[in-house]
């Protein structure tokens, strides 16, 4: 819920500085390893935007796949979850590289 409020805050800040009155679409970039559950984000977004410039806006979520650096193999490997082993060597000496994003990318406004 706080994350959805964070999104709304960013939208409202930009509404003030850029002078738009309505948001039609919001693009979010959400990493597979971030703490965001996309379905609850959708639900909370609808709830918190009621009565705001973003009321009824479409929410487009761009999923960013998870990737980690395997210290054993010395390469970047895809991972779906934080507790997944390296798909090459089966080890857990992994350092998360990508997939933790929680960003507001762009807005379609009028």
């Amino acid at each position: 819920m706080s994350l959805a409020e964070g999104v709304l805050q960013i939208i409202e800040d930009h509404a003030r500085t850029n002078g738009f009155a309505r948001v039609k679409t919001v693009w979010l970039e959400i990493g597979a390893l971030s703490g965001v559950e996309t379905e609850s984000m959708r639900f909370c977004f609808d709830a918190v935007t009621r009565g705001s410039v973003a009321e009824g806006a479409a929410l487009e979520i761009v999923a960013v796949p998870g990737s980690s650096w395997c210290m054993q193999c010395g390469v970047s490997v895809p991972v779906a979850e934080r507790y997944d082993p390296c798909p090459r060597c089966g080890g857990y000496q992994l350092q998360v590289q990508g997939g933790t994003e929680m960003r507001v990318k762009e807005l379609e406004v009028e």
Binding site: L3, G6, V104, E108
Partner: peptide
């Protein structure tokens, strides 16, 4: 279109 590229947690 308005480019934002801002972390949701930027304020925090």
């Amino acid at each position: 279109m308005v480019q934002i590229e801002q972390d949701i947690l930027a304020k925090n």
